[in-house]
Amino acid sequence: MLIYRVSRVLNLAHGELMMLAAYILISLTTLLGSHPVGALAGAVALSLLVGLVLYVVLMRRMTGELVIAAVLVTIALGILLRGVMVLGWTGRTYHPMQQLGWENKAIALGGGMTASTVALATVGMAVLLYCGLFAFFQFTQWGVRMRAVGENPLLASQRGIALHATYALAWALATLTGGLAGILIALDSGLDTTMAVVGLKAFPAALVGGLGSLRGAVVGSMIVAAAEVLAIHYIDPLVSDVVPFVVLIVMLLIRPWGLFGTEEEIERV
């Protein structure tokens, strides 16, 4: 979403990048077994670095090329990453929470509901990240520049904004937030190679909300999540993975540019 907003490139390797961050955490935990916090911080920092390196080494060449070519490159990247991860960390399921020596206690919420500690942390982190990103785009020099580049890269470069630096920052931020998400999911429900599906589910959420809109992403994910939970409860847990895409198809039929998107953006995808 972040990358799309700034560079109009849809990053289809987002799920794999989330997963990569979680696997990095596994390795760091084994390396720095005694410092769980250090391992966490290291994994987060590395995921930021991964974004930077990816842009500089791979995506930088795609600036100025057709957007569809860049999107295809991200698909290839996703496939490659998945392969590398299976080779490097094998396909078995990890439980980083246990490796870190922490317990994922269930906390009772009022009204007979329970939630795990990590799930609550995830929600808190999401709120924090959203506010952080919002403030970044709204108030900081680089945030405003990023929005400027997103609207009109040519004019931005003429105004002296360095395009490559801006795109690299967008990639770094995207892998950082994605990485955080991946780590939290891994902490909550374990990690294996199917996690990329969660990343895929982010697309219905982003598309329902309208690509390129931060507000839309939040509302979109709420709608998708609600639909999923309702389906698990009333229909069958097995259909839950399909629901986001059903919502997506319905949405595409009614309002293809999403809730908060603009009509012109649709031609670009």
């Binding site: 520049r145 009109n152 931005a156 105004r159």
Partner: peptide, 19 residues
Amino acid sequence: RKVFETLTVLENLQAAVPS
């Protein structure tokens, strides 16, 4: 297309301030 239309006047100027 001489201004960033989705940005406010102030933000247009902010984006143009050299780094």
